[in-house]
């Protein structure tokens, strides 16, 4: 075992090219168990792509991804690759900007779908587990509603419960509050804060919510044009960013 022994996520030389556009220019990043890392930066800086490369919604062009001991290197044969990708996905949970709840399923069905289909968990056990997470995000009273009847904040909280029910080792949040009305952002951030501070969930969060980052993040990483320019604790970053690009961005958003 090397120095990465305790990291849940480990990225090495991660590159992603779309056509002629190099969106990620060799990213190295380690995330320790229980750590909350906020990735921030301008839109188009590659932060969402970076997040989506961790669970292969985007396939990296080069480099390696390791999640909870499962290692992917660009260029594996297709059969081995697919298996690796599924194993990594089963260890990660993702929350999307647009919630992406399944509209044809009720809240509880949304939550138990993956445990029953992917893990073959018995329905009652999955429901019990699902209800625990619905309780955690505070939407147990909506268990039999269809997503269309929920507010944006409720939808996003259900989406968080849906991801948690798979017991992931790391949660990925892709701008989880960007599609919400301002008055609903707070309830989602409160759930995330709870996950981070009370449950010790390992989290990678792409967000513009600097208040949340300052309060909850262990580490903040600034991304610019496909590279991680600078990272550090919230205190180091918010008040003492060294790189002028980081400073300029923070001045603009704070």
């Amino acid at each position: 075992m090397d120095t990465d022994a305790h990291s849940i996520v480990s990225l090495r030389g991660l590159r992603k090219v779309f056509g002629e556009n190099e969106v990620l220019k060799g990213i190295d990043l380690d995330i320790a168990e229980g750590e909350v890392v906020v990735i921030f930066g301008r839109s188009g800086s590659g932060k969402s792509t970076l997040l989506r490369c961790i669970n292969f919604l985007e396939e990296p062009t080069a480099g390696s991804v390791e999640v909870d001991g499962v290692r992917y290197e660009a260029g594996q044969t297709s059969r081995a690759r697919r298996k690796t990708i599924r194993e990594i996905r089963s260890r990660t949970g993702m929350v999307f900007q647009e919630f992406n709840l399944f509209p044809h399923l009720s809240v509880i069905e949304n939550v138990v779908e993956a445990p029953t289909t992917v893990k073959g968990m018995p329905r009652e056990e999955a429901e019990e587990l699902g209800m625990r997470f619905l309780e955690k995000v505070g939407v147990t009273d909506k268990r039999d509603e269809y997503p269309i009847r929920l507010s944006g904040g409720q939808k996003q909280r259900v989406a968080i419960a849906r991801a948690l029910t798979m017991r992931p080792r790391v949660m990925l949040f892709d701008e989880p509050t960007s599609a919400l009305d301002p008055e609903l952002i707070g309830e989602v951030l409160a759930v995330m804060r709870d996950l981070a501070l009370e449950s010790g969930t390992t989290m990678v969060v792409v967000t513009h919510e600097m208040g949340f980052a300052r309060e909850v993040a262990d580490r903040m990483a600034f991304m610019h044009e496909g590279s991680l320019v600078e990272e550090g604790s919230p205190a180091e970053m918010v008040d003492g960013a060294k790189d002028p690009r980081t400073r300029r961005f923070l001045e603009a958003v704070l």
């Binding site: 919604l57 996905r89 990660t92 949970g93 999307f96 399944f102 044809h104 779908e113 992917v118």
Partner: peptide, 29 residues
């Protein structure tokens, strides 16, 4: 929507499971 496929895959569902459990039931409508 493609978001539906991504959500299913992020949960670890295979392509066949995604088609059968998520895409087709919605397409049926």
């Amino acid at each position: 929507g493609h978001g539906q496929v991504e959500a299913a895959q992020a949960l670890g569902m295979t392509r066949a499971q995604t088609m059968r459990r998520i895409v087709l039931p919605q397409a049926v409508r």
